[in-house]
Nucleic acid binder design. Structure first.
Length: 574
DNA sequence: TGTGTCTGCCC
DNA sequence: ATTCTGC
DNA sequence: GCAGAATGGGCAGACACA
């Protein structure tokens, strides 16, 4: 298939919002796709070259793509960046510079091949080589094709199409309608490879797809949690649940095939080599020939017997210096589910059964620890469990429907997380001052602002210091309003009383106060709140706006740095 | 050889 | 990660 | 309620460059 024919469909998809129409258009495209290309097209639609578990990253994003565009059309990268900032989309910027381009009949296969070549480039001169390869492709693009090509390395195709919609369209194209999606989805969840599902369906039909099964050593898509605001709502909706504490670490899927151990992240990246102690423990502690476990791994301090914050655990996600880090930051993995044992998939067994099997499979606690679980039917007990978890410095609890299967890849109300801040009351919110805004991308470009730079008042130095950016919690209308309000007090330069390492698109006078909710306060290399020459600053984890304070609230009435530091000291000790 | 920029991926 | 919105 | 698209902090690694 010619790439420009593919982008004709992309163009239609982009202009469509009805889900049924999206599926219709996409299935028309897929019908015309030969088996030889169907896998590649399935990946490209997602802005990828291969399934998640294959480490093939294009390695070009905003900055290098801008340079490639500049090179292709003989303009400076400043000009490209300027277009990007005003259009909110690098693809649109490329389209603009490509106005006079004719384009060739380059095929989808060739595009995929060159992008793969870009991904595989490494060593000295990588950046330049990649730019040259991408600008070479651009020279073969008409304006519309240039737009869609550019969006692929950015992983943002803006088509309104995700995995579930591709599955609907595959089913519609080959099996008549989307009712058979469930069958494709099942196979996808077990293999995590959309291209494989498509190719198998094309070449071997539905019966071929149905033969795809869970395999030890191949990652299964993780089941995810929905959220509910309170224990009462949980019991109301779920009646009886299994309740487990929620640890703050990495999700690790451990595969054991006799002496061979492999591990995958929540997003199916291979992490085996990072955690030697988990490899050893898996060999010793898993009482089965073959098994797949769902776990949460986090760093543990054997001296204090305490679990370390996420910021410490995340240092273990590395390629070099693994053995040394395994010594200084040893991990424990809390096992909370079992998906496979001794040649048999367990994902269709109810949770209660899986918990029994898990008990027999992981005995004594060691580096692997079976997560404590308890059946709960009343909101009072659940409240106590949640409070207990919080008082131990944990994130909260996860509750699960007892009879639910392991619905790989799903985020639904089979699994629900309850966190401290979800309950509504008793939240420690922070009053922040808006210091500037950042123009948005995509749909936010129309609102004038896509994120806010916010800070606190520092009494000691009588200045405003940054503590976070805020990109969520506002409705579309509120984004428009806050942009208007901000523009009335915009200033050309950073105000003298503002101390910031971050430069927003537009600085404003520090006057507007907002109430911000966050899950945690962290030490920060980039924010200036509480920062000194020798110590890092403080920042907010998962920040979101909850309200605009009234006009009576002055900037100097915002939360002070001193108060923030005190909150940092007290957190987790509740 | 040290530092800064950019990217991808954890949450 | 959290949140909002169209369907 | 699902699916998708906006957006957050912060870590390590790969390169570029002085």
């Amino acid at each position: 298939m010619k790439f420009k024919d593919l982008t004709k469909y992309f163009e239609k998809l982009e202009q469509t919002s009805s889900r049924l129409s999206l599926i219709e258009i996409l299935s028309e495209l897929l019908k015309k796709t030969p088996g030889e290309e169907i896998d590649k097209i399935s990946y490209l639609i997602q802005g990828r070259l291969a399934p998640f578990f294959v480490p093939l990253e294009i390695g070009m994003a905003e900055k290098t793509v801008a340079k490639a565009i500049a090179q292709a059309y003989g303009v400076t990268s400043d000009e490209v960046t300027r277009q990007f900032n005003s259009l909110g989309d690098m693809g649109l910027a490329a389209q603009k510079f490509a106005v006079k381009s004719k384009g060739t009949d380059i095929t989808v296969n060739e595009i995929h091949k060159t992008l793969t070549q870009i991904a595989k480039t490494n060593g000295e001169g990588t950046v330049k080589k990649r730019q040259k390869l991408l600008s070479g492709l651009l020279s073969k693009m008409d304006p519309i094709s240039a737009k869609h090509l550019i969006r692929i390395p950015l992983g943002n195709t803006r088509l309104g199409i995700g995995d579930p919609t591709v599955l609907d369209a595959l089913a519609t194209a080959k099996l008549g309608d989307k009712t058979k999606r469930k069958l494709l989805e099942g196979a996808y969840n077990k293999t995590s490879d959309l291209g494989l599902i498509a190719k198998t369906l094309w070449e071997k039909g539905l019966s071929g797809v149905e033969k795809l099964d869970v395999r030890v050593g191949s990652p299964i898509r993780s089941e995810l949690c929905e959220r509910l605001p309170s224990p009462e709502k949980v019991i109301e909706k779920m009646v009886e649940v299994d309740c487990q504490p929620k640890m703050d670490g990495f999700r690790i899927q451990i595969h054991k095939n006799k002496e061979e151990i492999r591990m995958f992240s929540r997003n199916l990246e291979e992490m085996t080599h990072m955690f030697p102690e988990l490899i050893d423990a898996s060999k010793k502690q898993i009482k089965a020939e073959t098994a797949i476990l769902d776990t949460e791994a986090l760093a543990y301090n054997p001296d204090s017997e305490e679990f370390l914050p996420f910021q410490e655990t995340t240092k273990r996600r590395r390629k070099h210096g693994i053995a040394e880090m395994a010594k200084t930051l040893p991990l424990k993995a809390f096992v909370f589910d079992i998906l496979y044992k001794n040649g048999k998939s367990l994902i269709d067994e109810p949770l209660s059964k899986r918990m029994e099997i898990l008990k027999e499979t992981i005995g004594e606690d060691g580096v692997l620890i079976r997560t404590k679980n308890q059946i709960v039917k009343d909101s009072k007990t659940l409240t106590l469990l949640l409070e207990d978890a919080i008082s131990k410095g944990l994130e909260g609890v996860v509750v699960k429907k007892l009879e639910s299967k392991y619905e790989a890849g799903a985020r639904n109300f089979n699994w629900v997380k309850l966190k401290r801040n979800s309950s509504g009351e008793l939240n420690d919110t922070i009053d922040c001052v808006i210091l500037g805004y950042i123009t948005g991308r995509g749909k936010r470009i129309a609102f004038g602002a896509g994120a806010l730079l916010v800070g606190l008042y520092d009494k000691k130095s009588d200045e405003f210091v940054t503590v976070s950016k805020i990109g969520t919690g506002l409705t579309d209308e509120e984004w428009r309003e806050v942009h208007k309000r901000a523009d009335r007090i915009r200033v050309e330069k950073r105000p003298a009383r503002v101390n910031s390492l971050i430069t927003p698109s537009v600085w404003i006078k520090p006057e507007i106060v907002i109430e911000v909710l966050a899950d945690e306060i962290t030490r920060s290399p980039i924010h200036t709140a509480g920062k000194s020459d020798s110590d890092p600053g403080y920042a907010l984890r998962f920040p979101r706006l909850v309200s605009f304070r009234g006009f009576d609230k002055k900037a100097e009435d915002s939360t002070t740095v001193e108060e923030l530091v005190e909150m940092y000291r007290l957190q987790g000790k509740k």
